[in-house]
């Protein structure tokens, strides 16, 4: 049953008939650069949406500014292409006032983490019922190639000819620090994995942050190649699965160190019982946070993908609706005449 699978969509009307990916395509010409990773993400999302089983008209995509933020124009749902960095705020107002909608935010590393960083962290701590897809290409694309808040230190770009000076954000560390209840990472080119993460995000009640490593083939080509190439990915990529030991390639596993951090070791008979078993639902965020720190920021070696954290916490829009219901139950539906009159009046005959 859809209802059981997507509790976050409990209040969204169900579709009467099956939908196909085609139903979610618009007549607008897609205008990303040829070869952009955005195409693969768009195709994956369009293919995934029918699975939700909700009415198309009750789906809304809200975006900010940047290459990724053109996304809503290509989704045959309701949509708003807003202003730089503000999509989470706008989507919060929409989701908080319309529990019958499935609201998605599409954003990029500059949009979400630079100009819109404030809105992102506050959406996460509030736990509004939003699904935030953060396309991270570690570069500014639309403004033609300046370094972004996720670019590696020392990045040579047009605005940093001698190398960038500011340390990058780790988006997932940031999200966990901001009390996020759902944090995941996936990769544009891995359709199957991407879809599985979208599914988990859709199932989550509250704000879901999905970081999607996305290739900008014009300004930062190959940024994630090490995670994609058959020759390197087995040594670089860690696939997280809830309830399963966390392993890298055939020989290595993730272990907890004495300092509480995580590290990789060659798995032996002696230590194999101590391999960390992934628990996305752990109430304590410490292990999930440690997982976000596992990757080497420069080489991307030991990069975990999948759902790092998925926990339950009261949802902002639900709480807001409950307060309204409770106020009406306690005091009765608002009576305008009584409100205007108040308690302290006098009459002139």
């Amino acid at each position: 049953m859809t209802e059981d699978r997507f509790p976050s969509l409990r209040l969204v009307p169900k579709s009467d008939e099956p939908q196909s990916p085609k139903d979610f395509k618009t007549d607008q010409e897609v205008r990303w650069c040829p070869g952009c990773g955005d195409y693969a993400i768009l195709a994956a999302v369009q293919s995934f949406m029918p699975e939700l089983g909700i009415r198309r008209e009750n789906t809304v995509f809200v975006s900010g500014i940047g290459c990724s933020s053109r996304f809503p124009y290509y989704m045959n749902t309701y949509g708003m292409h807003s202003i730089h960095g503000r999509a989470p705020a706008i989507a919060t107002g929409l989701a908080a006032s319309r529990p019958d909608l499935s609201v998605w935010v599409v954003t990029g590393d500059g949009d979400a983490l630079s100009i819109g960083g404030n809105h992102l962290i506050h959406a996460l701590r509030r736990n509004v019922n939003l699904k935030i897809l953060l396309f991270n290409n570690r570069i500014y694309g639309l403004t033609k190639g300046q370094y972004s808040p996720t670019s590696e230190l020392g990045k040579i770009t047009k605005s940093t000819p001698m190398g960038s000076l500011d340390a990058p954000f780790n988006p997932l560390s940031l999200a966990i620090g901001a009390e996020a209840t759902f944090v995941a990472r996936t990769i544009d080119s891995d359709r199957q994995h991407l879809t599985s993460v979208l599914r988990a995000a859709a199932e989550h009640e509250g704000t879901a942050l999905v970081e999607i490593y996305q290739n900008c083939n014009i300004f930062n080509d190959g940024a994630f190649e090490v995670l994609k190439e058959p020759g390197t990915r087995d040594e670089a990529l860690i696939r997280l699965e809830h309830g399963r030991p966390i392993r890298l390639g055939a020989e290595q596993g993730v272990f907890r160190g004495p300092d509480g951090g995580l590290h990789l070791e060659t798995v032996t008979e002696a230590n194999q019982d101590r391999i960390l078993v992934h628990d996305a639902g752990a109430a304590n965020p410490a292990t999930a946070f440690a997982l976000t720190r596992l990757a080497d920021a420069d080489t991307l070696h030991h990069t975990p993908i999948g759902v790092l954290r998925d926990v339950r916490r009261p949802v902002y829009d639900t709480l807001m609706a409950e307060q309204l219901d409770r106020a009406a139950a306690d005091r009765g539906e608002g009576d305008l005449a009584a409100l205007l009159t108040g308690s302290d009046t006098w009459t002139v005959a």
Partner: peptide, 29 residues
């Protein structure tokens, strides 16, 4: 006055305040 169906959102900043109001307006509020 929540019993009038009034939703009040104390935002993280001025920009989010109007952003949320505009989002709600898109939704018919």
């Amino acid at each position: 006055h929540k019993n009038f169906g009034v939703r009040t959102f104390q935002a993280e900043d001025e920009i989010a305040g109007i952003g949320a109001a505009l989002g709600a307006a898109f939704g018919g509020a």
